[in-house]
Write a protein that binds this DNA or RNA. Structure first.
Lengths: 336, 336
DNA sequence: CTGAAAGCGCTTACAG
DNA sequence: CTGAAAGCGCTTACAG
């Protein structure tokens, strides 16, 4: 039953600062939110009072009164082995610098938790919700009641519930097929998760490949997300093929890295005896030996586009476009 | 100037639900926060009203009134290449499941931003602040005014400002030195960041090694955090040594992985010609070829201990202990 | 440029 | 088990 004893001096509030500075609470509030509209001499006194009292504004009260919480919710499936880490990092850093905090919600890969997390975010009156998850019909209905900005990222659905910042997964698959073909490879294996966007890239790849060649694409499924640990099983399966593939297109750079390690262990030269392509352009892609040919997604740019849209939404301006396509780039390196 | 037009039907609030259910707002509030104290028949009506109106409680208002925000702030230096990803993931998942959201704040490796982020968290009235950062004297003064629980993790300072959940970095270094020696290695190289906890592990290692051997430890500095990309330079420096080290102790598993790749590329067998030790027991440690000998930190357990402390703090019970030592474990695998 | 006052949407003693 | 009412700490038209 022991409760932590606290110093009896309660933390100062706006009234205390106002009293000390000899102004009204309204003026202190204005100083806090819009310093320019306060007289310079008044500002000096308020600033001093705040400093002396170590005043920290209660942003729950502020948010309630202004209906702007200075919080943004970000929904991702997982944190570990995530393709989104660079995007999240850039979003958080930039928003933090502007005084907005990020609520991180983990949805897992199964459906269901996404809606609960959206509710949790709405309950906190966040200014925006940024989600990597595809949105179901029921969830769309919920989002209609969300007064903030809903941003779907890493994808470009035809009719996003809010706005979208992403790229075309089908197009990536398509371009990868052409790239591989033009490099002279003729027996591709595709290692891919079977759901969501990985599926879209797979579809694009298979379609694209069929335009060039009659050789079927050898497909190997892994669970999502593609990771280093999948490599052993995948490589074993590759070796079992009667006609050995000459290139493996992977769902992530870490899986590609794993395949290279397995190939080395088996005495296969990459890319001469087996070429490898990754996805995401993680830092290992350029640091691995051999360096890994991959698809670059500019996660930081996605973050910047999102933040710009959030800022303009908060200041009452609707984003110019419904969808922002940040594109992608195939980076040819040593592994393929 | 175009602002998004919103449906005129404002979102329902507690009064609306109360009116619909034919009870007072107090009763709805009780139902929401403590369903058991409401009569079963009343509960049925309230539940129905909430469901029909798709009511989402405003937790900013709730937090202001109750001074419990159901938010916890987590401060880490970076998201990418972070040793903390498993800890954060477990914390977020568990807290989310209990209706608490996590505010993620990035502090960078330089000082200064930590205090700003603590202020930002305090302003949002978070129930707890969880930080991986060492705390300066001024920041400690600020924390005195924080009514929530302050938890320092991944370390065990003698006098934490709040509570601490972590382990001894010096002890890890010490035990690693003994482990290496007992395995028969005699010319260790230590690759480590020079600041913070990496520095503590380094000190423990060097001290521990001196108890066994007169051979000095070859030290190579990298910037924080240790990562795969450092391997090329580090390995080159290793090869330049007149007396080649027989084991490399790394600051992370991904750096260890990089050293193995470099060794392979140079035709050196791991562990026969060069042994490698990692840190953290990331999933690659067990998936790499050879598998990587490393130090396991149970990040998920740290998260569970933190969450338990937060829960008890919120229910008014002081945590039993000031410090929780979750320990560590050296896992011997193939690489050393 | 500044102040008095109403209001944001909840929670919680207090009384019954 | 329930209700009336005060209060949480801000913001913001409105008036000057």
């Amino acid at each position: 039953m022991a409760t932590m004893v606290r110093p009896s001096t309660r933390n100062p509030k706006l009234d205390d600062v106002a009293a000390r500075a000899g102004v009204s609470t309204a003026t202190v509030s204005r100083f806090l939110n819009n310093p320019d509209i306060v007289a310079a001499s008044t500002a000096v006194r308020i600033r001093a009072a705040i400093e002396e009292m170590q005043y920290v504004p209660n942003l729950l009260a502020g948010g309630l009164a202004s209906s702007r919480s200075k919080m943004v919710a970000v929904l991702i499936p997982h944190l570990v082995d995530s393709l989104f880490d660079r995007t999240i990092e850039t979003m958080v850093e930039e928003l933090n610098a502007g005084g907005t905090m990020v609520m991180l919600a983990l949805t897992g890969t199964a459906a269901g938790r996404t809606e609960a997390m959206i509710r949790a975010a709405m309950g906190r009156q966040v200014d925006a919700i940024v989600s990597t998850a595809p949105i179901s019909a029921e969830t769309t209905a919920l989002i209609q009641h969300f007064p903030g900005l809903f941003v779907q990222i890493w994808d470009l659905p035809a009719e996003p519930p809010g706005i979208a910042v992403g790229f075309s997964h089908v197009e990536i698959g398509h371009n990868l097929a052409r790239f591989i073909y033009e490099r002279g490879y003729r027996r591709p294996a595709l290692v891919s998760a079977e759901l969501g966007r990985a599926r879209l890239r797979r579809d694009g790849f298979v379609q694209g490949w069929e335009a060039h060649s009659d050789t079927p694409v050898k497909e190997i499924a892994v669970d999502s997300p593609s990771r280093f640990g999948h490599a052993r099983r995948v490589f074993a399966e590759l070796r079992r093929q009667p006609e050995r593939p000459d290139v493996v297109v992977c769902g992530s750079d870490s899986l590609a890295q794993g395949i290279i390690v397995e190939a080395n262990a088996a005495g296969l030269k990459v890319p001469d005896q087996l070429a490898v392509v990754g996805f995401g352009n993680a830092s290992v892609a350029s640091d691995m030996r051999p360096t890994i040919t991959t698809v670059e997604i500019d996660g930081a740019q996605i973050a910047r586009e999102v933040n710009a849209a959030v800022r303009s939404h908060v200041s009452g301006v609707a984003p110019k476009q419904r969808s922002v396509n940040v594109g992608f780039r195939i980076i040819a390196r040593e592994s393929a």
